[in-house]
Each structure stands twice: as structure tokens, then as C-alpha cells.
Design a protein around this nucleic acid. Structure first.
Lengths: 334, 334
DNA sequence: AAAGGTAATGTTAACGTTTTCATAGGAGGA
DNA sequence: TCCTCCTATGAAAACGTTAACATTACCTTT
């Protein structure tokens, strides 16, 4: 293994100088640096991260923790997040992707292994883990879910505004009687989306159909069940459009319509939330509200790196990213 | 930061003894170990991986490299793979998930950072990277795609047998005239799947419809285009079933049928390959062949760890895992 | 010309482990 | 009783960096 020592000898300088040549901000003559870098390249020197980390106390690893990797849901979300994470990641950092549920040894997996933690949270269940990280003093950013603790750097999407935009669009297409299949009861996202729904109902003077407002759980399976219940309502109680808590729910709902011989959007309209990949190829393709996962991930990593580097980050001023309406085929014009 | 030194002092032993207490295979009196571990736990000692790695020359990180994280395709595949990877991973290892396409500095990201590399390969494009790893002497396992180089530890699925089983099933449902939308031309997986198709055609005495055999590229978009071409054929040239190179292709094909008012499976049947999550909720749900990604990932990590530990792994005896037919709604009984 | 400052580089001591080699103390055999 | 062997432990070096501090040499200022 070729070390800094070998480079130093060949370049006729000290180890320190070689070290400086490799560290951007160090004071060193440009010519010396160039010479050292050339020699290092020639003999194939690569810095040893263990040695470097031992003295700098850094690991050059960011731990990314997802709510759950095993659930079949939100998989395109998952890879979209990772892709954007890498786009914003400094070159010499590694990303360690983990499942919060399988962190059996916090010390082994987190405490001594990563410089910072980015939680891509989808569920209140993550709070325990989040507070464990917070209290251990490791730099922390939580994205994708609203966290009420203002001491935690948090980047979420404005689900309220997103849902409101979506329902405004539905209203603009002439719908009056609308239903909803909500997300998991109690989740911040479910509450905010419901509030966006209510707000639009008021401002557009819509008629929410009580019997067609159901509690779901963000899964396709439940989406299908709840939609079947809605379709079983007497004709005069049917809504003309059902707002789904997320795209997975909408896809289940779509399937319920299919099984009951109900045509979307001819007989009934549907709208989702998230804009997962399958929304663009489903039958019919799904009008939905695109969750800005890429932006959240990018900003999250940026903030996290800043916190790690000891820079001042305005944590209290939490970021809310605006979702965007994606019009496709599932909402009819009445 | 509490170190091994602190534990040693409190336990009244040397650093060496404490180190031994933490290393399973070391010679140490059971009572001494127990005592040391208790004290370490009490004062919150956690081994420093950088220091440990510096002397043992290990990083306790496995690099996992995917063909592409950015393509919208095969995302459930992606998370299924990662989940299974973790199931088989020793406790103190970290997984660094990467995109082959964004490895701009091999030295920075691979050479000095990971103990071994697991490539989840989906494309011939990966070969350059694979050979770079191989020639740098880093322990390597390639899964999910057949590699002809017998010096590389390789675990793939038996796509030939999988496709054959699928077409046998189609034949058993009474289909005679069948078409196909193949994968990317030249890819080993495409070739093997085509061969499985041909084999079943012969043994079941089926009639492949020349005009309905298309070259695709494993994407939904192309699947949709090619299926539209097939549907545009004159009535007497129409196949009763189209075999799709993968589920994404099938989902595109499904959409082409929908847009042309053709009912699946009433008017025409479809079968996919992979068993991605959306196959189970598509309209209609997709009969497909399940690719054993979990098994491949598990075996892959197991072999890789063995290679890293210097154990003898029978590389030449490559593993082929059998895919499994998943019957759903998209193939009609004639 | 002396004093002070600055830019560039060098010396040396950490950083927290594991490993190599050494040592102490019994147990067992002759 | 002495020697040998084995088990359990310890002392010290090594791993490859960076950081703190020291040292040049030259340049400016008075």
C-alpha cells in the first residue's frame, strides 16, 4: 500500500506538505501542490480514510434512514430520493442507506459510524429513532414529514397547499359532490391533506359527501376496499370525484372501479398524491399532486452537510416545499 | 470520547485485554471478559471503527452498485434487493448504495472505502465497472445478470427456465398464436428469455406470429408503442397472447390495449416477467414470472462476506436461481 | 540596517485500535 | 525438584493521517 510517506519521499517534501496538497484550504505553493499531485497520481496514492478519520474524527459517511424498506409501498419514491441525495452529496462522502426498523444496535450502526443522519420519514413511528439521534448530539435533518419540534432541522412538503390545489382543480372541472379516502389516522400528512381538502371545499363551495369520506392507510389494498364501499352507496349518494390520500390509495381505488365495472373517469373521477412512477402508466393514468421528494432530499443533504461542518443553519425557519399538480386522465370535465 | 484506555483503567487490566474481550475469537478468561464488557457498557464505550480499521485494514462497509438509480424502472426491485441485502448482512457492516453511472472517482468511492463490492447488474454497460473492480483485486460478486467470465462470482436467475415455464402455462390455457415484445437487443437476459420462449414454442407446438414479435427495451414507453403496432396488425395476424420481456413492458402494453379499446384478457392476453409490485394492482393484475431478487441478494452477500474473510468460495460453480410463475388475471383460458 | 511580518514548509505528537512478542504462573511429567 | 508446556495477560510498536507548533527565508517598514 502506497502512503503519504512514499509521496513525500519522492517529491522531496515532508508528509505534512503532501497532506496539505490534498486538502483544498491549506496554505501551499501552487507549484508544489501540482508537483505533489502529479507524483501521487503516478504512484497511485489514495488517501486512507481510516487514518484521516482517526485524527479528524470524521467518517465521511452520511446515514440515511427510511421509515421502511420492506413495505411494498412508495418504492419509486425511495429511488427518487436516493438519486437526488447523491446529486447534492459532496464527492468524498458515502451514503449508508438504512431501514429505521432494523436498527438493532444504535451504537454500532449510527453513533460511531456516520457524521450525520438524514431521516426520510413517512410515519410517526420514526419519532423514537429521531429523538434518539437528536439526544445523542449527532447532526440531524428530517425530511418528508412535518416535525413539530422546532429544534430539529426539518424539510417537508406543503401538503395542505398541495391538496388544496388539487381540489381547486377538481372544482374547476365542474365537480361538486366529492369524497375522500384519507391517509393513516393521526399522521401529520393525513391531517394536513384533510385540511387542504376542507379549505378548498369551503372556498369553492363544494359538497363533501359524508358517506364517501373514509379513513384509509395509504395502501393500495385499503384504497381498493374503501373505494368498493363508496361504489356500493346508493346512486344518489355517489360523489363524482374521490380524492385519494396518496397514489397507492388511488391505484387501489382504480382497481375497485375496474372490478365493479365502473369507468374512470367517465363514471367517476379520481385524484392521487405523490406522483409515483406508476401513476403515469396506470389505466387510466392518474391526475395527481407531485410531492417534491427530489428537492427535499437535495435541500436536506445540503443543510446536513452544513450542520456537520459547523456552519450556521437556520433551523427554526423550517422549509416547506410546494407540491405541484400533474394533470393526466383520471379527472373528467363535467 | 470514551476509549479502550478508560475501560482498561476501570477494569484494572491492559488495553490489550479489553481489545480481546471485544473480539470473539481471542483467548481470554470468561470471567475477565464478562467483567470488562459490563464496565464498557456502563461507561458507554463504543469501538472506534477508524482506529480499528487502520490496523486491520478493513472498512466494515460493503459497496452495493446498481445499474441505474435514476431510471424510473425497477424501483420495487431496488428496494426488495436492499431489504434482502440487509437480512443477510453481518451486524457491524454498513451498506453503501451507489449508482454505477455516477462513480466518477473509482478510487474515492470504491478502492479505499469498501471491503467488497456487490454489483446488482441489469445491463451490459456495467461490464466496464465490473472489470475495473475485478482488476483492482477487490472482492466482487455480481448478481442479477449472467456474467460469462467464470472467474467472477456470479448469481443470476434462470431466465430461460422462467420464460419457458411462462409460455408452457400460456399453452396450457389453450393459446396457440403468440407474440412477444423482447428486452434490449443483445442483453444476456433478452437472449435467454427469447430462447426460453423458442423452446416452449417447439415443445408445445405453438405458432409464433412473426409480425407480432418485436424488439423492445424493457421500458413501459416502448412496451406501449410496440403493443400498439401489434394491435394495428390485420385481424387474422393477431396473436391471442403477447409475452412481454418484463413487467414494465407489460404495463406499457396494457396501456396500449386500454387506449385502443382492447380488453385484457378478454380480447388479448399478456404475461410479464419480474413480478414488480404494481403487477399485483394493475388493471387487470398481471400474470408474470417472479424473479428471485431476494434470494440472489442474500446469497450474493453471503458469498461476498466469505470472500472478504478469505474463505474458499466455489466461484466456478455459478448459481442459477429458478424464477416462479405467478398466476393472476392477464392470461385468458381459451 | 534592524525589526517585524508573512508565506511556505518541516518536526513531532497525537488519534484509538490491534498485533507481535514477552512474561508470569500453574499444571503435568520425569 | 526441575523442566516443559500452556493459559492468561501485559508492554510496546505500528497503522497512515492531520494538527499544533516551530522554523526558515524573504519582504516590507521605519
Amino acid at each position: 500500500m502506497v502512503t503519504i510517506k512514499d509521496v513525500a519521499r519522492l517529491a522531496g517534501v515532508s508528509m505534512t506538505t503532501v497532506s496539505r496538497a490534498f486538502n483544498e484550504k491549506a496554505i501551499i505553493k501552487a507549484e508544489t501542490r501540482k508537483n505533489i499531485l502529479a507524483i501521487a497520481d503516478k504512484i497511485g496514492y489514495v488517501p486512507n480514510f481510516n487514518a484521516r478519520g482517526l485524527v479528524t474524527k470524521k467518517k465521511f459517511i452520511i446515514g440515511v434512514f427510511f421509515s421502511s424498506l420492506h413495505d411494498g409501498t412508495s418504492t419509486s419514491f425511495f429511488s427518487a430520493a436516493i438519486g437526488s441525495l447523491y446529486d447534492a452529496l459532496p464527492d468524498n462522502y458515502l451514503l449508508s442507506i438504512n431501514d429505521i426498523k432494523r436498527v438493532n444496535s444504535f451504537e454500532q450502526l449510527v453513533q460511531n459510524r456516520v457524521d450525520g443522519v438524514l431521516v426520510v420519514s413517512q410515519s410517526d413511528d420514526d419519532d423514537e429513532f429521531i429523538y434518539q439521534v437528536k439526544s445523542s448530539g449527532i447532526p440531524l435533518v428530517v425530511i418528508n414529514r412535518y416535525i413539530s419540534d422546532r429544534e430539529i432541522c426539518n424539510i417537508a412538503s406543503d401538503d395542505f397547499a398541495g391538496l388544496k390545489d388539487g381540489v381547486d382543480y377538481i372544482a374547476s372541472r365542474g365537480h361538486k359532490r366529492i369524497g375522500m379516502i384519507e391517509g393513516i389516522a393521526g399522521f401529520t400528512s393525513s391531517v394536513q391533506r384533510r385540511q387542504g381538502f376542507d379549505q378548498s371545499v369551503i372556498s369553492n363551495n363544494l359538497t363533501p359527501v359524508e358517506a364517501a369520506i373514509k379513513i384509509g392507510d395509504y395502501s393500495s389494498k385499503t384504497g381498493q376496499e374503501k373505494m368498493a364501499e363508496i361504489l356500493a352507496l346508493p346512486k344518489e349518494q355517489q360523489p363524482t370525484c374521490v380524492v385519494c390520500g396518496n397514489d397507492d390509495t388511488a391505484i387501489g381505488a382504480l382497481r375497485a372501479c375496474y372490478l365493479n365495472g365502473v369507468k374512470v373517469p367517465d363514471d367517476i373521477s379520481l385524484i392521487g398524491f405523490d406522483d409515483i412512477f406508476y401513476s403515469s402508466v396506470s389505466i387510466p393514468s392518474l391526475t395527481t399532486i407531485r410531492k417534491p421528494i427530489g428537492q427535499m432530499a437535495g435541500l436536506g443533504i445540503k443543510d446536513l452537510i452544513a450542520i456537520i461542518n459547523g456552519e450556521k443553519v437556520d433551523i427554526a425557519n423550517r422549509v416547506k416545499i410546494q407540491p405541484q399538480l400533474v394533470v393526466r386522465e383520471s379527472v373528467a370535465k363535467l
